[in-house]
Design a protein around this nucleic acid. Sequence first.
DNA 1: GTGCCTGCTTCCCGTTGGAGAGTAGCTCGC
DNA 2: GCGAGCTACTCTCCAACGGGAAGCAGGCAC
Lengths: 140, 140
Amino acid sequence: MTTSAAQRRERARAEYNAFLAVCPSHQLLARVSDKWVTLILSALGSGGDCAGEPGAMRYSELSRLLAGVSQKMLTQTLRSLERDGLVTRTVTPTVPVTVTYALTDLGLSLQHTMRALKSWAETNMDDVFDNRATYDERVG
Amino acid sequence: MTTSAAQRRERARAEYNAFLAVCPSHQLLARVSDKWVTLILSALGSGGDCAGEPGAMRYSELSRLLAGVSQKMLTQTLRSLERDGLVTRTVTPTVPVTVTYALTDLGLSLQHTMRALKSWAETNMDDVFDNRATYDERVG
DNA sequence: GTGCCTGCTTCCCGTTGGAGAGTAGCTCGC
DNA sequence: GCGAGCTACTCTCCAACGGGAAGCAGGCAC
């Protein structure tokens, strides 16, 4: 029987665990490398517009700003960010209940790091789109 | 009839488009904020282990190193990275055909930016895990 | 020939994420 | 009192994305 495939798979899994053991930060890296995490932190870190100051935002504000996100994902992502200690959730029992989200110091430091990524995206956007157009021409 | 919900949805969509018009880089940011993109670039940028030098890697090498990725996703992600001009794909017609992937200058600049994110993850990993444990205790 | 190697591609299916409706708790209008 | 409306979710579908395993091209080894 051709056990080589299964054996290789086993070995691959073992190596994967070893990889995680050597680089456990990759777990957190994978967690943080999420579309909505990035965009929500970007929104919380830049205020209402794209160039503002960090500040608390309401749930509905975030929902309106990142209209591409579903309410489910917004709630889910905010919960996980709260769990990771990156944002704080504050409920104010006003007339209609008001929930505000703000970055913690930890979240702020991550957002600060992500700002570099964002500015990379802004800087190299045109290059990437050019490359895409060229690639599509060559292939399609 | 309660058209307010539909109207608000329409308005939200319009605002979303406006948001993308104001911050088109967010599209690229969302594209780049992908688990496998981050990990593949991290792998290509750090060589075989976690602290090496950038260099070309073979398909099978990447597959073995990031054993958590399926072949499908690896191929797919590498293709899109190639399309975006972040990596180059080189086929060498050796005995069994050899395909190597390497970062372009653009990919290298992104990887350099991501290195900050990776070091953030390494630095604050413990804090995040502590926060998670605390949160889970409070809730569960 | 048969088998095996690498680098994909294809098929099946479970999980994830989106759309839209529904809910709790409150206040306001009538 | 009763319905309407507001905010911040929560629930229920369903389509689409991603993982696992198997298949495939094509060149060499035996």
